[in-house]
Design a protein around this nucleic acid. Structure first.
Lengths: 210, 210
DNA sequence: AAATGTGAAGTTGTTCACAGCT
DNA sequence: AGCTGTGAACAACTTCACATTT
């Protein structure tokens, strides 16, 4: 099936493409130029047939009898995911977790930049020095609109999560990484990815005790 | 299908049970005593048939024509998930993120307690005061064994993630919540849940730009 | 009348088996 | 010979349709 002339790729496949990309990066760092689907799949923790099916959604890049060129495959996946250009992101809610996420240096390397954070108390005393500006929540709409920000990280308390999301969407945000433990109501064309640490732990606990 | 006399419940269902549990908690806080599958499903962001199928895996608790008793259903789900008793958890890697997770007060309320943290530099100057003891990584094996800890949160740098996991497993840990952006190799009976923030963002960015 | 519980149908995602290149 | 690419088989999950109960 197609959409905009492109195949519709399952969400899970997109997820795995991100994983492949990171495995390929490590191979490249180690100076490995070519890799088989078998070897890459093993590194990513999946079956080789699945890897090949995943790639088949958007092209055929391998050489039969040989495998895949590491650099070339990296580029193709990167292009497909749209990771090529740096994406601006805002963070809303600078509490414990929000502050840690701001300090987390892992995003830029992956093509994302948190360009600003917002909080109801932007001037609250914080023990850590942060590179990004922390602004008042009321400045958010203008800022988001002006910088054409399409993605936001939400780390506000549950009580204000829904209203905050409403404001973000109104200002033009289309994708939300939500850390608040609540199911957010959003329009169909807005995407929410939830990260709920308590649920992840609960999940583990269920499966390890059989 | 059954395992140990209990039905095998799909992983996705277990995930949703956790969500239902949180929705029920909110209903109870609001003094609501009874809820229909339709209403609860809506709050959880799923279809009502799915909710009913999910519950059917481990029992039948509703009253036809009426719905579910909020308290009773909470208890049943809680019992099924094994959330009833408090679970001890350790955290390994007290960097930016690890520190934030230690400060995060959301776990106890959900039945988990981080009883200790470990780091290669336990005495490193940290600007935040933490309730839990921060111990040297070398003390980890004895501590984990002694306290019968079965779950760990891993927030160490990628470079030492695999060896740290090996040590945790050797000491008896069966479930790992992994924040390091790497695919960990573990025995079949050990479960890993990955939380990769960069991948979540990448995923959002793909779907919002169509 | 209203809402649950569930077999059957439908959909999606995974794995197999092997044809087809290099 | 070795490895990719892919239709077909399979498995898992979701939704439908409706019988059943209060």
């Amino acid at each position: 099936m197609k959409r905009n002339g492109r195949p519709i790729i399952p969400k899970k496949t997109i997820y795995r493409l991100s994983i492949y990309l990171r495995c390929l990066a490590r191979l490249r760092e180690n100076g490995i130029g070519t890799v088989s689907s078998e070897a890459l799949a093993k590194a990513a923790g999946v079956k080789s047939t699945q890897l090949r099916k995943d790639l088949a959604y958007f092209g055929t890049f391998g050489t039969r009898g040989l495998g895949y060129d590491v650099s070339e495959l990296s580029q193709k996946i990167s292009g497909e995911l749209g990771t090529a250009q740096l994406q601006p992101v805002v963070l809303v809610g600078v509490g414990h977790l929000g502050l840690a996420l701001l300090s987390y240096r892992g995003f830029e390397k992956e093509g994302f930049e948190i360009i600003a954070a917002f909080d109801t108390e932007p001037n609250r005393k914080r023990e850590k020095k942060i590179a990004q500006p922390i602004l008042g929540i009321r400045e958010m709409p203008a800022f988001v609109a002006e910088h054409a920000v399409k993605m936001a990280i939400l780390s506000v308390p549950v009580a204000v999560a829904q209203e905050t999301v409403n404001a973000l969407i109104k200002s033009g945000v289309m994708g939300i990484l939500n850390f608040a433990p609540i199911v957010l109501a959003v329009p169909e064309d807005v995407m929410v990815n939830n990260v709920n640490l308590a649920i992840e732990l609960e999940n583990l606990s269920y499966f390890i005790q059989g």
